[in-house]
């Protein structure tokens, strides 16, 4: 049984990893077709993965409702929002879900008038939280933190008209910070991350990194 539970998954990862790494260096139609087929398979599997996420969320809120934990009533709104969106999505403007998606349906209405405004507002609220966090943490205690503080202030001022009113050089300095020291540091980080990603990928392919198998037998 260990063969099915451990050896086969490691074999699948090895075969797929080697095959797809080789595929890049084979400029043939068959190689391109293979890439197209497996990425399509990957999309299908990702589609199934969405149902795992949906189940987890539904299960979490159902448990909250069932156990009547504090604030369980709010979980009802998760169900309400999800079910009503699913119903209108499946009805698909009267054409139903087995036909192509129709435009201008109630499903789209939910998207434009609930999801878009609520999503944009939640993300815009972060402006206040970031400002409040910055007020508490941005203290020029060391030279390094002073550099961080000055860079942040210059970039912020350089992106708004008031920066230009204060000094015509501020937007130019902000652009220079983004284009030179910021670019250099980002490039260094990216190179480090890329080398790390390659090392991790090789460890997965050769079965050294097995955490994706989870615990147990």
């Amino acid at each position: 049984m260990n063969f099915f539970k451990r050896t086969i998954p490691l074999l699948i990862a090895f075969v797929m990893g080697v095959l797809m790494a080789m595929q890049y260096y084979v400029p043939h139609k068959l190689s391109q077709d293979l890439l197209e087929i497996v990425t399509r398979w990957d999309r299908i599997i990702a589609g199934f993965a969405v149902f795992i996420g949906a189940y987890s969320l539904f299960h979490l809120h159902w448990t909250r409702i069932k156990r009547r934990v504090e604030g369980w009533g709010y979980s009802v709104f998760v169900y309400f929002g999800a079910i009503i969106t699913l119903i209108f999505g499946l009805i698909n403007g009267g054409k139903f879900f087995w036909n192509d998606k129709q435009d201008g349906t109630m499903f789209d209405w939910f998207y434009y008038y609930i999801q878009v405004p609520a999503g944009a507002t939640i993300f815009s609220i972060l402006a206040f939280f970031i400002a409040s966090a910055a007020y508490r943490t941005f203290r020029a205690r060391t030279r390094e933190s002073t550099v961080l503080l000055i860079a942040a202030i210059l970039v912020m001022l350089g992106r708004v008209p008031i920066g230009n009113y204060i000094s015509q050089y501020i937007p130019a300095v902000a652009d220079w910070i983004m284009a030179v020291p910021n670019l250099a540091a980002k490039r260094g980080i990216l190179l480090g991350v890329s080398l790390g990603a390659i090392a991790t990928s090789l460890k997965i392919i050769f079965g050294i990194e097995r955490s994706y198998l989870g615990g147990g037998d």
Partner: peptide
């Protein structure tokens, strides 16, 4: 509003 947003987003993602 927060929980409604989560629910609608979930339904939207599935569809």
């Amino acid at each position: 509003a927060e929980n409604l947003y989560v629910g609608v987003s979930l339904g939207y993602t599935i569809i």
